[in-house]
């Protein structure tokens, strides 16, 4: 039971990392607060669902959906978001909120009001038995969850390599610490911004594609999880990718364990009836309470990037 929930928590954490890494990058580099991230999460799921039905292959659909969502991100950046970098955060927030409404309605118009399920290929539908462990007789985990976990870790490693060890990554880091200086050195900052926005959006879309076979694609599916991604970004320290990764895994585990085990834990200290009423309420608030506690101790989050 504990091992299964750990895998679930890690999987949620990886998804949250895919979402929040884009948020934290766009904020760290462009000083942009971007709610429309939630829409790319949803778009990724819908595009992937349609392509899976069309091509008959889930993996092919993912490969094809990435350039499509990147192109949409490019258009959105070029037409609307690019005009927001110089504005204050409130303007960015409202305009990208407007983008969410537009995206939700367009998806409603194009795909209809009901959700869209994504069929998995047969080899991903099975379950993997990991043998007995210390706590459980035998651990059985859906193959797909393991795939999501592995894929997410690969993408996370790729991102760290990109940001930490390539020339593009050097420019991204330079942009995060001093934009004006970078532009004075002859770097096309505008192009860099477009690239980072598209990269972040593709990450969000990937998260949507990965979750689609589990929950199915639905309108407004990003609007809830985007706030959790915000919590991750705040706890990790706005602008820090390392912080986003650690905070995402932490939040994923805390949220999953809270929902799974809190009632059992509470029964140790109160009557079972009281525990059964209190547990769902507390576990629903758990990550926010955690955020509050962390902010009291460290208002800038756990890993605040160096001052500019």
């Amino acid at each position: 039971m504990i091992a299964v929930q750990t895998i679930n928590g890690l999987q949620l954490g990886i998804l949250l990392f895919l979402l929040s890494s884009g948020l934290t990058l766009t904020f760290g580099i462009m000083d942009l607060i971007n709610l429309s991230h939630a829409s790319f999460y949803m778009l990724g799921a819908f595009v992937c669902a349609s392509l899976t039905v069309l091509t008959g292959s889930f993996l092919l659909a993912i490969v094809m959906a990435v350039p499509i969502t990147a192109f949409i991100a490019f258009v959105v950046e070029w037409s609307i978001v690019g005009r927001l970098y110089q504005r204050d955060h409130l303007d960015q927030l409202l305009a990208t909120f407007g983008l969410i409404l537009v995206a939700d309605t367009l998806v409603h118009w194009f795909w209809g009001p009901s959700g869209l399920a994504v069929p998995l290929p047969a080899w991903l539908q099975g379950q993997v038995s990991l043998g007995a462990s210390l706590f459980d007789p035998a651990i059985v985990i859906p193959t797909y969850r393991l795939l999501v976990l592995g894929f997410g870790i690969a993408v996370a490693l790729g991102l760290f390599w990109l940001v930490g060890y390539t020339r593009t990554g050097m420019l991204i880091r330079a942009g995060a610490s001093n934009r004006v200086m970078l532009s004075a050195l002859g770097v096309n900052v505008r192009l860099l911004f477009t690239g980072v926005f598209a990269l972040g959006s593709v990450f969000a879309a990937l998260a949507g594609m990965l979750i689609a076979p589990v929950t199915e694609a639905s309108i407004g599916m990003g609007n809830d999880i985007i706030i959790t991604a915000f919590v991750v970004v705040i706890i990790g320290g706005v602008g820090s990718i390392k912080g986003a990764l650690l905070a995402a895994l932490f939040i994923g585990l805390v949220d999953t364990f809270g929902r799974a085990f809190l009632d059992v834990l509470l029964m140790q200290i109160m009557s079972s009836q009281a525990a059964e009423t209190a547990a769902p309420a507390i576990s629903a608030m758990l990550i926010y309470l955690l955020m509050a506690v962390i902010l009291v101790v460290k208002p800038q989050g756990l890993f605040p990037p160096a001052q500019r």
Binding site: I33, I227, I234, S283, A284, M285, M291, Q300
Partner: peptide, 22 residues
């Protein structure tokens, strides 16, 4: 700034999920 916006948003959602869970 941006922290304040996100945190007020998160506290609002906290109350939302609390009410959803009751």
């Amino acid at each position: 700034g941006i922290h304040f916006i996100m945190i007020t948003m998160a506290f609002g959602q906290m109350l939302f999920y609390l009410l959803v869970s009751i």
